[in-house]
Nucleic acid binder design. Structure first.
Length: 316
DNA sequence: ATGGTTTTTACTGCGTC
DNA sequence: GACGCGGTAAAAACCAT
């Protein structure tokens, strides 16, 4: 059943119960009756990720990574196939001349499709990008963005004679940043089995040549959420950490500092304040920084701001 | 290449369970 | 004694110039 464009009504098929017209809710991938709200068909098509996840498990369940018809395929998934049936569109047999012509066209079409070396390498890189994104459980918009970036770099001849794996990693990393998905170079390097320095090198290249706009680093808030998700920390710690972060975000504290360390410090402070007390070691570990860094950030935050614990009504 | 800044490494001492 | 924590010095990594 084809999905009508968003908001537009599809008159061809009515709702089975009230006979009203159907509306395609593209965001949810549903076909919904305009009157009674009945969902006719669910999960018709994945359109982008659902990036609202409450906890880690939820996230695992909801993230969808796939390779449908998009930028991630070298020909956008729009391939023309010329069949080798010996009939024309009306079902009549072709004469010898036309049959030979069709045969030739078919041959060339198949040859051209992936024959140029540029095409072949493009499809190679794109499949690697999707593989990496899949392995890292990244949402689809990231792999799309990464694919787009790689295409752009290729078009601008930046990718020429560059390491394919390096460009893959850099595209994915930049895509993560553009999409606001907090993944560190370190994580990308791990997933692609490339040296961190190389990822950084190609990332800089990409930044300089392709993505000229400023790409803000992943915000501390994102890191906090990520930390909390990964360590399965009580959401109330996250809430406090986020509010502390928003109230104390200050150039004195954050400029030039690794956001992961800062996030770890906020989470740590919050956990202590809420009597959850997650050890420094633990936050440091999931944030992939050292305890020393956590301590230093903590000290700076506490030195610059007076954090008073709000007295809660005595529970006991 | 270089110099300033930040992070890591490695180590020590303190208090508590 | 094991653990969590706070601190320090020096090495390493990072970044802008």
């Amino acid at each position: 059943m084809p999905i009508p464009p968003p908001g537009r009504e599809d008159q061809s098929q009515g709702c089975p119960t009230c006979r009203s017209s159907l509306i395609g809710d593209v965001d949810k991938g549903e076909l919904v009756c305009s009157k009674c709200g009945l969902v006719i068909q669910e999960g018709v098509e994945d359109r982008g990720p659902e990036w609202k996840a409450l906890d880690f498990e939820d996230k695992q369940k909801r993230i969808r990574v796939g390779a449908p018809t998009t930028l991630a395929l070298h020909d956008y998934g729009l391939t023309t196939e010329i069949g080798n049936t010996r009939k024309d569109s009306h079902g009549r047999s072709l004469d010898t001349f036309n049959r030979n012509a069709a045969e030739k066209m078919r041959k060339w079409q198949a040859r051209i499709r992936t024959s140029s070396s540029a095409e072949r390498s493009l499809s190679n890189v794109l499949s690697r990008i999707t593989a990496v994104c899949q392995a890292m459980n990244l949402p689809r918009n990231v792999s799309e963005t990464a694919a787009h970036l790689y295409r752009a770099s290729m078009k601008m001849k930046v990718a020429k004679s560059k390491s394919i794996s390096g460009m893959t990693a850099a595209s994915v990393y930049l895509a993560c940043r553009k999409c606001g998905v907090g993944r560190s170079i370190k994580e990308i390097a791990r997933a692609t089995r490339i040296e961190k320095g190389d990822v950084a090198k190609y990332y800089r290249l990409l930044l300089k040549e392709v993505e000229k706009d400023y790409v803000p680093p992943t915000s501390v808030e994102r890191y906090i959420s990520k930390l909390v998700n990964m360590a399965e920390i009580d959401p109330k710690v996250e809430r406090l950490a986020l509010s502390l972060a928003s109230k104390t975000n200050d150039i004195r504290i954050s400029s030039g500092k690794a956001p992961a360390g800062l996030a770890a410090a906020y989470v740590y402070i919050s956990s202590v304040l809420l009597d959850e007390h997650i050890p420094q070691r633990e936050v440091a570990e999931v944030a992939e920084v050292t305890e020393v860094t956590v301590r230093n950030r903590c000290r700076e935050i506490l030195n610059n701001f007076l954090i008073r614990q709000k007295l809660r009504p005595a529970a006991s």
